[in-house]
Computed example of a mutant assay.
Amino acid sequence: MVGNEGGGDNPPTSHKRPRPEAGGGGTEMDCGDGGGGERFDYSPYIKPDYKRLYPENATYTEFKVFIEATNNKDRVGNKSPIYLNHIFSSEIKGVTAIQRINANKIAVIFKQYNTANNFINNTTFLNKHEFKAFIPAAQIEKTGIIRFVPANISNRELYTKLSSIYEIIAIRRFTKKVGQQRVPLQTVSITFLSNILPDNVQYDLFSYRVFEYVPPLQQCFRCFKFNHSARICNGKQRCSICGGEHLYKECDKPTEICCVNCSGPHLAISRLCPIKMKKILEKKNKITYASATMTKQLNNDIEFPPLSPPKIDSVHKPVNKPVHAFVNKPVSVNKPVHNVNKSKVVPPKEDIKAQIVANNDVLMALVQTLVELGNKGDNTPTTMNSIREALLKNFK
C-alpha cells in the first residue's frame, strides 16, 4: 500500500465509501499552512491489501497469467518449451496453453477464473521454480483521468469520497517538477476494477467526467528506441546527445546534437522528434480504438450482417400478374417462384420504389389490401401469411 502514513482506519472497499468522521482519517491530509503541519503527500493511494485477481463475474473466454523469473538474469521466455510444458502439465491443474511473450516473460492461460487465481496464490510452485506470477493490468483494470481537481484534496480523501459504478482501486495525482520540488496538478488518474471506463465519477453532489488515459510512450534509455525498457534491451548503448555508442555522461561532443532515431538536431528524448510524435499518436489511436471496441462489445452493440430475404412459399397457385412487379424481368407464371435465378442483382431501393409507384396495378392491390385489413371485423389474428394471401388475391 502506498500513501497511507497515518495508520488511520482503512477505508471500506464498497463502491461508495462513507465520509470519514470529523477529525479522523490518515495524516496524509495534514497541510503546511505555516503552523508546522506537514505538506500533502501526493504519493499514489492504492486500495489497502489490494491484490490483482480475476473477479467472480469475469466473462472472459480465457484467463491469462504472466510468469517472470525472480532472478532478473534468468530468461523464462528462452527456456525449453519441453521443460515448461512438463512442469505446468504435471504440477498445475487447468492450464490450457502456454505462450511466449518475450525473452523475460511467458503467459499461462486458464479456462476458469478460480484456477487462474489459485495459481497466483500457489507460492509452493512459484518458490520452487523461482517464478513470480501476476495478472496483466489490462485484463481487469482500466485507468481514466478527471480534470480540474483542486490540489488541496489529497489522494486519500479522493479515494474515500469518490464513488463510481465500478470499484476504484487506485488514485494518482499528476505532478510536475519545478526546480527541486514536485508541484501537484489538477489532473488525477483513477484506476477502476473494470475493462471499460464509467462516464463519470461523483464527489458528493459534484460529477466529474472521466476521460481516456493514454500512458506515456515507453522509450529505452539504452538504445533510445521505443516500446521496450533498458532492462530487456539487447541493443547497443547510445548517447542521447550526439547518438554515439557511449553514455551521455561520457559525451565529448555536447554541441553536436543528433537524434538517434531521426538524425534531427535535438536530443533523442525530445518531443520534437517526428518519429517519437508519430509513435505517440499511434499509441493514442490504438488505445482509443481498443476502448471503443470493448465498450461496444460489452454493450452488445455488435453489428451483424443483414438477414437474407425470406423465401416466398411456392405452394400458392400461380397468378396472372407477376408478384415481383419491381423486378426488371417478370417471373414466368409457369415456373415456381423459388426457381428464380439467385444470381440476379437486386436493384437499389430507390429503383424499386420508383417502379412500384409507376405501376398502378401494384398500387391498387396494396391499397385494397390495406382497406380490407382495416375493415376486418372478426377476431382472427393478422399474420404475415394472411397479409400475403390477401395481397396475392388482390393481384388477380
Score class of each variant (00 low, 15 high):
N104K: 15
H129Y: 15
V367M: 14
A292M: 15
Y166A: 06
A170W: 04
N72W: 11
K349E: 12
N114V: 01
P20E: 04
A133N: 03
H316K: 15
R388V: 05
V201D: 02
E38M: 04
L158S: 01
Y213W: 06
A290W: 11
G35M: 15
V315A: 12
F226Y: 15
R173E: 00
Q139N: 11
I287M: 02
G77E: 00
S154T: 12
K176T: 07
E5V: 14
K296P: 03
F119W: 02
P309Q: 05
P305H: 05
N117Y: 03
F224C: 03
K335A: 08
H15V: 04
R173Q: 01
A137R: 08
Y45H: 12
Y159T: 04
V65G: 01
D33N: 13
P347F: 00
K353Y: 11
K142N: 02
P11D: 05
D378W: 00
K321I: 13
I165D: 12
I196K: 06
E167H: 12
Q297L: 12
T383C: 05
S207L: 07
F226G: 06
A290S: 15
I275Y: 10
K311W: 06
G77T: 00
G377D: 14
N339A: 06
K73V: 13
A151I: 14
V346W: 01
L366V: 13
L158W: 00
R52N: 10
Y213P: 03
H324S: 13
G23Y: 11
I196V: 09
E68S: 09
D74T: 12
P44I: 01
K284T: 07
Q202T: 13
I232D: 06
M364Y: 09
V76F: 05
N114F: 06
D41F: 02
Q368C: 10
R238D: 03
V178G: 09
N117V: 02
L391H: 10
F88T: 01
N4I: 13
H246A: 02
Y208F: 09
Q219I: 02
K142F: 04
D199M: 10
K342S: 07
N78C: 07
L185P: 00
N195C: 12
A58P: 01
G26R: 10
N341L: 03
L158T: 00
I169L: 08
F148I: 01
K283V: 08
S308D: 12
N85K: 05
